[in-house]
């Protein structure tokens, strides 16, 4: 039986939220002249799976770029574990325990799977620790061990995604950020990928993901944030967001739903996306 995260959440909705592990406050950011984010505020509670959804161009990926230090916000603050991340380099942010798996395939195609995973520990000074982590990660991801010597470019899209997950775990992160983890995957691979996200969550990591596949993403998540035109339209528990009729009509309606049961908008824990890892 799948352990649907929403079950842990049942009844958690009205309870005052624990202070966020990651807190965005009035973040204004963009590329070139324009602002994509126009004052984004939300928090990612410790131990949550928080899913950011919204239409194309809402600023979902920009939020992630700002958090991981690739894009510097013009205004506002991003705090992780109480300390600001604004102005820190991607490397320093990795050092704080925040890692990101980007949307596009980001493995080094000409390196072996093993080398790719080792690259995850690039900023880690301690080689013995990196070796131990590699062993642990290989244990977690059988595909990594089986294909260790193969060039990463030779793997299927789903396998590459799993190796990207494996790579991001090399730093034993506190917060894992996933940009559209479901993109381009067939339903079966999608289940494996979502199951892996749950596994990382069960290990005590906080997960922040951006999903185009809003319904599936929110079902997986304990918390949801709806972004629209560079501002937060709604945030709450995953259920609250899923159940919100207005949001449902806007973003979760037929077109973008890939859930197995499109007919009930509440999406009551069908939990089909994942089996146990």
């Amino acid at each position: 039986m799948a352990r649907a995260p929403s079950e842990e959440l049942a009844g958690a909705g009205p309870v005052p939220r624990p202070p966020g592990l990651l807190v965005l406050e009035g973040v204004v950011a963009g590329y070139g002249g324009g602002d994509v984010l126009r004052g984004v505020s939300f928090s990612v509670p410790q131990g949550s799976i928080t899913c950011v959804v919204g239409p194309n161009g809402a600023g979902k990926s920009t939020v992630l770029a700002a958090i991981s230090g690739i894009l510097r916000p013009r205004r506002g603050d991003i705090r992780f574990d109480g300390r600001s991340l604004v102005g820190r380099t991607p490397r320093e942010i990795l050092g704080r325990g925040v890692v990101q798996v980007p949307q596009n395939h980001s493995l080094f195609r000409e390196m072996t799977v093993r080398e790719n995973i080792e690259m995850g520990a690039f900023t880690l000074g301690d080689r013995a620790l990196a070796r131990r982590r590699l062993e642990q990660v290989m244990e977690m991801f059988p595909v990594a061990r089986e294909r260790a010597r193969d060039k990463a470019g030779a793997l299927s899209g789903g396998q590459q995604r799993l190796i990207e997950f494996a790579r991001c775990l090399m730093l034993d992160p506190l917060l894992v950020i996933l940009d559209e983890p479901s993109m381009g995957l067939d339903p079966r691979t999608l289940r494996t990928v979502f199951a892996t996200i749950r596994m990382m969550h069960d290990q005590g990591r906080t997960i922040l993901l951006v999903e185009q596949n809003a319904r599936a993403g929110l079902r997986l998540s304990t918390h949801g944030v709806v972004l629209e035109n560079g501002v937060v339209r709604l945030s709450g528990s995953g259920r609250e967001v899923l159940d919100n009729p207005e949001i449902g009509a806007l973003y979760l309606g037929g077109g973008i739903s890939a859930g197995p049961t499109g007919q009930h908008p509440a999406g009551p824990r069908s939990g089909h996306e994942g089996g146990s890892p």
């Binding site: 690739i70 991607p90 890692v99 980007p102 980001s106 080094f108 390196m111 690259m119 690039f122 790579r167």
Partner: peptide, 18 residues
């Protein structure tokens, strides 16, 4: 390794801290 990573994918290299 950081050179080869940058050679293959600059954005990904940045994300792993290169």
């Amino acid at each position: 390794r950081s050179v080869r990573a940058s050679l293959q994918d600059r954005a990904a290299a940045r994300l792993v801290g290169v």
